[in-house]
Amino acid sequence: MSDAAFWILQLLNALQYSMLLFLLSIGLTVIFGLLHFMNLAHGALYMMGAYIGISITSATGSFWAAFFLAPLAVTAIGAVLYFTLIRRLRNAGPMNQVLVTFGLIFVFLDIVRLGWGDIALGLDAPTALQGTTKFLSVSYPTYRFFIIGLGLVVMATLMTIVSRTQIGAMIRASVENDDMAAAMGINVGRLFFAVFCVGCALAGLAGVVAAPVFSATTGMGISILIPTLIVVVIGGLGSLQGAVVGSLIVGSIETIGAAVLPGVASILIYVLLAVILVVRPAGLIPARV
C-alpha cells in the first residue's frame, strides 16, 4: 500500500466516524440550546435505535425497513418521554435533569437486557451496500461511504433549514431568547416538541446506521455518551455549526491518533477537551454570545 493510499483510507475512516458522531451530537446540542435540557438519555435512545433496527430487520428481512422505521419508533419513545417527564423538567434546574435522565439510562439499559438479552448483536449491511468501492485508487467499504454520504446530506439539510427557512428563523430566535420569541407569536411549545422529536429521530437513525459497523451491546448507550458530550462541548452548546466542527475534530483526532500515536490515542481526546475549554471556556462556536 502506498503512503497516499494509507492516508486516503485514514481520512475516510475519520470522516466516517465524524459523521456518526455528528448524527448523535446534533440532536443533543440543539435540544440543549433550545430547551435548556441536558438529555443524558440521548445515548440510550441511540441504543434503542440500534436494537429496534436489528429487530425490524430480522422481522422484515429488510435493512431499509429498519432504516426508516427505527428512527420513527425512537421518536415515539422520545415523545412519550417528552410528555411524561421532559416537559415538566424544563424549569426544574440542571441537577434534576441529570438525575432523571441518568435514571432513564438505567431503565433503558435493563429494558434492552430484558428484551434482547446480554449477548451483543450484529446487523448485516444491506446487500447493495456490502463489499467495497474504489475511490481515488483505494478500495473502501461501500457501507462506510454510505454513512459519510448520509451524514453530509443530513448536515446540509439541517443547515439549509436553520439558515434559510422560516422554521429555522423561529428556532434561531428561540435559541436567542425564547420569551421574546413567544411574545412575537411563535408557538414555542410546539416548536420545542418538534425539535425534540427531530433530535430523537436522529439519535435513532444514528443507532440503526451504526449497528452494522459497531454492532449492538447493552453498554453502547453509556459508552457513546462521553464522546458525544465532548463533541457538543467542544463545538459550543446549542450550535449547529459547533456540532459540525466538534464532530469533525473529535472524529479526526480519534482516528488519526489511532493511526499515528496509538500509544496515547485514548488520552488525546481528553487533552484536546481540556485545552479547548481552557482557551475557549464556552466552546469554539457558542450559540449565544
Binding site: 500500500m1 494509507f6 483510507l9 485514514q10 475512516n13 475519520a14 466516517q16 466516524y17 462506510r144 459497523v213 459497531f214 453498554g219 459508552s223 457513546i224 480519534e254 482516528t255 488519526i256 489511532a258 493511526a259 496509538p262 490515542a265 485514548s266
Partner: peptide, 23 residues
C-alpha cells in the same frame, strides 16, 4: 502490532488500515 484502548474502541478501521500497510 497495536493495543487498542480497551472498552472504548468503536472503530477498528484505523488499526486495520495500519495493519494492512505493513503487508
Amino acid at each position: 502490532g497495536e493495543f487498542t484502548p480497551f472498552g472504548q474502541t468503536n472503530d477498528f478501521g484505523p488499526y486495520l488500515t495500519t495493519a494492512r500497510a505493513t503487508n
